[in-house]
Amino acid sequence: MKRIGVIGAMHQECEYYREQLSDTRHEQYLDIKITHGRHAGHDVCLLESGIGKVNATLATEWLARSFQPELIINTGSAGAIKGGARIGDFVFASQVCHHDVDVSPIGFAYGELPRLPVFYQVRKKWLNLLNEVANELNDVHHLGVIATGESFIYQQHQVELIRQRFPAVIACEMEAAAVAQVCHMHDIDFLILRNLSDVAGEDAQLNFMEYIEQAGRKSTELVLTLLAAISSD
């Protein structure tokens, strides 16, 4: 049995997951909805954080201090940047970065903050297990860099700028690097897995509204299967 934290930004990314937990109880921290429950023998704490890095930071810090999980999973939706990736595919982060951090004029790499790395690495043991689960489910998935920023990416020039700065990027969203940074500072393992609700720069805002519920449900199903696999492992 493990203590596992799960963070999703939006109601559509959390509601189905909330329904699948047993022995639930609820509380609230600021505007963050918190659900305690159990699944596959694990103690699970699900946080509906709200959109953006500040909300994700608050949620992750609350988990680190109040729940003390062994693993934090950040899940939900993302916009594809990798060529050939389609709505409904999964993206798994091997690394996460901030695509909107720039203190390069004073000697740092683009995306780097003082005393912190440009890229936050996901532990291979969790990635290997996640890949095994996705392969068993025949889910199409892509592995690479997921880039985080405080903007919804819907214009092609935004996509090209992110690609130019981070050539290995496969998707973008608005919370993952904040989750990873807090986990890094607390030495907590993390996983970032997202289902694609849109392709960044290609009618992204319209597709996002149409497919966000599908992305949330598919992400939840994968997380639930992963938790069962962690029990078996």
Rank of each mutant, 00 (worst) to 15 (best):
Q121K: 07
I146N: 08
E13A: 14
T75Y: 03
P69R: 07
Q155W: 07
F90M: 09
A177N: 08
I51H: 12
E27H: 09
S219G: 13
R25D: 15
R18A: 12
E150I: 02
M10A: 09
E202W: 06
Y120A: 02
G216K: 01
K125I: 03
L127P: 04
G88H: 05
V223D: 04
E202P: 05
M185T: 08
K33Y: 13
N131E: 12
A178I: 07
H141R: 03
A93G: 15
A85K: 02
R163K: 12
A168N: 11
D31C: 15
E136S: 15
D100Q: 05
T148H: 05
I153S: 00
L227S: 04
E202R: 07
L127T: 03
L222T: 09
E150M: 08
D102W: 01
F108I: 01
Q95D: 14
T35K: 07
Q121R: 03
D102H: 04
H141V: 04
K218M: 08
S219L: 09
F67P: 01
H186K: 13
A147Y: 00
L161M: 12
L127M: 04
A176N: 11
Y17W: 13
C97F: 05
K82Y: 10
G37N: 06
T225V: 10
V122K: 00
D203S: 11
